[in-house]
Amino acid sequence: MMDIKEIVKPENLVYGKSELLIDTIMHYCPGCTHGVVHKLMAELIDEMGLQEKSVGVAPVGCAVFAYNYIDIDWQEAAHGRAPAIATGISRLNPEKFVFTYQGDGDLASIGAGEIIHACNRGENILVVFINNGIYGMTGGQMAPTTLEDMVTSTTPCGRDVDLNGYPLKMTELVAQLPGTSYVTRQSAQTAPAVRKCKRALKKGIRNVLDRKGTSFVEVVSTCNSGWKMSPAKANKWMEENMFPYYPLGDLKDGEKGNPVSNN
């Protein structure tokens, strides 16, 4: 029988914390997808040697403190305005890797105008869009992406589409815009899904470095506090309820200038 101490040696390390992830306890709830996606961004910026080139734009919402977790320069945006801020940074600093990190309340509701126009101009940025169908930080209210009949604190009887309209598919919308070159929908609930999501984010970053226009990576996520489920149950609920409405996969992978999917 091999002793654990003989395995736990630096030369045997296969998975550890990226140096760009700051040594602090994240404020997120247990099991929150934000932690996973933060980790992926930190790993990629680290692995691709982009620390000195990167400027992140943090949203308003649960990820408002993203700048406390990844060791790069950051700007904190007003609610929904991250794509405009990223535009300002990127236009004046075209050699930088600029990305926004936004939730569904931020991106799909109050910032719907800014994201559409940034994508339509083909701003050379990566947009990381965390869609968990709810407002997490303010306490679980309905988001534009909340599913029909889904219970939130402002739809206590479930989302009534006659009253509140329909769940908004932002990713399908921006895929129609000629300014985007890569539009994909991912998830991060299992190890294979996380690995796939990382490949998608990497492609998005590559596209920014290659000045290919806007890359848009949605990550269908959970909000187990807002959904009032355990993390494991939330993952299952997401697979059963979110994925049919928000199907995973690439919507567009091509060149700027094409209005529709060409994959």
């Binding site: 734009v57 700007q75 945006a77 007003a78 305005r81 405009a84 801020i85 990223a86 535009t87 300002g88 940074i89 236009r91 004046l92 105008g113 800014e114 126009h117």
Partner: peptide, 10 residues
């Protein structure tokens, strides 16, 4: 709204 936030970023 976007213009002033572009100014913020830049």
């Amino acid at each position: 709204v976007a213009a002033i936030n572009m100014v913020y970023g830049a």
